[in-house]
Design a protein around this nucleic acid. Structure first.
Lengths: 144, 144
DNA sequence: TGGAATTACGCGAGTCGTAATAATC
DNA sequence: GATTATTACGACTCGCGTAATTCCA
């Protein structure tokens, strides 16, 4: 059966594999880090390349090297991972103290002053910088 | 054992189902919109609730109603979907004209002036606002 | 020859649909 | 009784591991 009108979905699990590959440098070490076999890692990367339609690795000696497109994808993967982390935090904090978080941003040069004072609130990725601040919510928590 | 960076993964497919449920209001209409059966939708939502550890629906008459936690999760889902869309655009534009995009942000009130002049470059979600700008890249494209 | 990646293939887990059940209007 | 959601169960797909193959230092 074919799934219709699925604009662009990427399996986050495969993206995690690609992130680990960037960090470890080889399929073998990636597999070890994820408690998988090199075969599984190879298949995941191949599937992700099929999904996205771009080559993610190229041969380099007896190993592999990430392509520029893979690095582009990874920059977004970092942002998505951070977003997921925020979701987890917000879900965990739901109903406890009535606070959530909002994401604002600014130019990297401008956020450094804040980062120096509250480093735990600032997360930086390759292409963007976000500041997360907790905001008190009073009564109207969920406008319908 | 070394830290396996897998603290929190959410299946984006299930998140899409939840988004459609928010939009349609009932499992039946959601199933119809996604070319699925109500059974599949019910199982997906239940699985997502297990994954996240929070209740997502509560009974309302003979239908269901989203919980506040579900709305919190959906706010992040919007942000993630937008991020994926950016990833797709960047991947498609890779190597064509040597341009990519960077994400910057500002307070909503401050971005309106830009939005009025280049609306296609601005995307707004529930809790954040991002401006996407294309930046020319010259020679040093990938610093190792 | 040894290490790294890929491919072939079988098995288990997850997902969907059909059908039956429960609940509400 | 009609509509909505949930549960039980069988069929199918997908992902992982084992094992064989290829490539390179």
């Amino acid at each position: 059966m074919e799934q219709v009108s699925e604009p662009f979905t990427i399996d986050l699990r495969r993206l995690t594999v690609l992130r680990e590959l960037q960090r470890r440098g080889s399929l073998a070490r990636t597999a070890e880090a994820l408690h998988l076999t090199p075969s599984a890692v190879s298949q995941q990367i191949a599937a992700l390349a099929r999904e996205t339609g771009v080559p993610l690795t190229e041969k380099d000696g007896r190993g592999v090297r990430l392509t520029g497109q893979a690095r582009v994808l990874l920059a977004h993967a970092d942002a998505i991972a951070a977003q997921l982390e925020r979701a987890r935090a917000d879900l965990g904090a739901y109903g406890e103290g009535g606070r959530g978080s909002v994401t604002i941003g600014c130019l990297s040069s401008g956020i450094l002053g804040v980062a120096s004072k509250a480093p735990s609130a600032v997360s930086t990725a390759a292409t963007w910088t976000s500041l997360w601040v907790s905001t008190p919510r009073t009564s109207s928590q969920d406008p319908p």
